[in-house]
Design a protein around this nucleic acid. Sequence first.
DNA 1: TGTACATCAGTGAACGCGCGTTCACTGATGTAC
DNA 2: TGTACATCAGTGAACGCGCGTTCACTGATGTAC
Lengths: 191, 191
Amino acid sequence: MSRLKPNYHHGDLRNSLLKAAIDLVERNGIAKLSMREVARQAGVSPGAPYHHFKNKDALLTALAEVSLWTLDELSTQAKEGCKTPQARLEAIGVAYIRYATDHPALFQLMFSYARDDVPSDLSDAPVYRVLASVVREFDLTGEAHIAATMAAWSLVHGLAVLVIDGPLRHLAHQPEQVMQLAKAVTAHLRL
Amino acid sequence: MSRLKPNYHHGDLRNSLLKAAIDLVERNGIAKLSMREVARQAGVSPGAPYHHFKNKDALLTALAEVSLWTLDELSTQAKEGCKTPQARLEAIGVAYIRYATDHPALFQLMFSYARDDVPSDLSDAPVYRVLASVVREFDLTGEAHIAATMAAWSLVHGLAVLVIDGPLRHLAHQPEQVMQLAKAVTAHLRL
DNA sequence: TGTACATCAGTGAACGCGCGTTCACTGATGTAC
DNA sequence: TGTACATCAGTGAACGCGCGTTCACTGATGTAC
């Protein structure tokens, strides 16, 4: 595994492919990702990836899965140190938007490609569940709780999308401004 | 123009190409749109479109422009009959989300490809200006007005995106549910 | 510890494909006189 | 109204390209005895 001599057998190709794909997606966007380039970047022949992923779609889906759970974890961590529900909500929002601006293409990918994580319930879905748990602290129940969670999610998601791939993209490389905007916008949420 | 005999000169090819492209984008998504297929659909040879659009990117940009102004007009119309600012705001939101669910691929396209319409001011930008004018009725000024407009926009845009290409896509073909959600979510906006 | 063998995870050549774009061309149209 | 000619807006063949995927293969690894 950790030997330095070049191996015929790579040993950890699946992970290397995912890493390469993440790298390429972040650099060139989803549309330009090709299996051949992923293989190239991983230093392997064009056919090799097919021992680990059925096809391109499977690779992209795996990528989405990874990213989704990464964001889930980041937002969970973000709320940890906060004392009030409001603070936790804002922290999640900021973490969410930071992830989006730091990894725009992955962010896009993770929502459009994660096919499995759409239980009609959603409450086990990564990211959503984090938001929902914080919104629950606001003493809402049933429909009201769902609507409030959706509102919070929409607000934060919308801003993220407008910044990374929309009319606000001129802010994409001014993180402080985006964060400021994120806070200002979050303040308009009524729970 | 309106002759039925097949013309060597098409007469209105530019518009036919745009129409064909809209059709194809709506059916197959942005990623699968090809110049050749647009030409094919318009009943013309592969080279013909290049007399009207410099390249594929130019076609897509033109498409985005058209869609953007369509949505601008739809949302302007939507607010017309409404009596209170709140009603106008909700009407715009609903129109916005309806457009997104009716034409998901165009909706995506129009934000990611419209390159010119990003004046750092935004106040002349289609769609944004409609929202901003309604938000202005809430007696906010300066920064507060901008933040409020952004919040409204983010909220509505976020829900749209979650529905058409995200974890809520299972709702994409249940318009009533989406509209209900849109209203419930809009109610969480504090202005 | 050694050997035979199955299985795993690579190679690299090859396939067919549709794409964006160019180009020399030509038929249709509009204009000047 | 007729004719000469420039310009416009098509044709269709051709280019080179990179892609996704397959396949026969082979070297490395693990296992049974």
